[in-house]
Amino acid sequence: MQKLGIVAGSYTAFGNDANDISMFQHARSSVCVGEHAALQNVATECVSSD
């Protein structure tokens, strides 16, 4: 994201797996899609994948 010029704390992240944790930690807000326990711990919101 740094290569794209996206500044930490200036975006909303959506993700569904552990590889999204770092992105979530640097986001203004974050949405966990589905039931991933580790990601839910750092997400600001969670939604069902249905």
Rank of each mutant, 00 (worst) to 15 (best):
L39V: 08
A18D: 15
A27G: 08
T12C: 12
S22D: 14
S29Q: 13
M23D: 01
N16P: 02
E45W: 11
A37G: 02
V33F: 07
A13S: 14
M1F: 11
D20F: 09
Y11T: 09
A37C: 00
C32T: 08
S29Y: 10
S10K: 14
Y11W: 04
Y11D: 04
Q25V: 00
T44F: 03
C32V: 07
A18K: 14
A38L: 12
N19T: 14
V42S: 01
V7T: 10
S49F: 09
A43V: 02
S30T: 05
V33R: 05
D50C: 03
E45S: 13
N41M: 08
V42C: 06
G15F: 01
A18N: 09
G5W: 05
N16E: 07
L4I: 00
S22A: 14
S49D: 13
A37H: 10
V7K: 08
N19C: 12
E35S: 10
M1L: 13
N16Y: 05
F14A: 12
D20I: 12
M1Y: 04
L4H: 04
S49P: 01
S49A: 14
E35N: 15
V47Q: 06
G5L: 04
I21Q: 07
S29G: 01
Q2Y: 00
A18V: 12
S30G: 04
A37D: 14
Q25H: 03
K3P: 01
H26T: 06
S29L: 05
H36F: 11
D17K: 10
E35L: 07
V47A: 05
V31H: 02
S48K: 10
S30V: 02
R28Q: 14
G15T: 10
Q2V: 02
S22H: 03
E45M: 06
S29R: 13
V42M: 08
N41I: 02
N19L: 02
A13I: 03
Q2I: 04
G34D: 04
V31L: 07
S48C: 05
A27W: 07
E45L: 09
F24D: 04
T44A: 06
M1T: 12
E35D: 15
F24S: 02
S10T: 15
S48H: 11
A38N: 06
V42A: 03
L39A: 08
N41T: 13
D17S: 15
N41Y: 00
Q40F: 00
D50Y: 01
A8P: 15
V42D: 01
T12R: 09
I21N: 06
Q40P: 00
T44V: 00
A43S: 15
G9Q: 08
A18C: 03
Q2E: 13
G9Y: 10
S29C: 09
Q25E: 14
S48N: 11
N19M: 01
H26L: 14
A38D: 11
N16G: 06
L4F: 09
H26C: 07
M1H: 13
C32M: 09
E45F: 13
I21M: 05
I21A: 03
L4R: 05
F24E: 09
K3G: 13
A27D: 06
A27M: 02
Q2W: 00
G15R: 10
H36K: 08
F14N: 07
L39R: 11
M23K: 01
T44D: 07
F24M: 13
N19Y: 01
V33W: 11
S10E: 11
D20W: 06
H26W: 01
C46Y: 00
M23C: 11
G15A: 11
S10W: 01
A8D: 15
G5M: 07
A43M: 07
A27L: 02
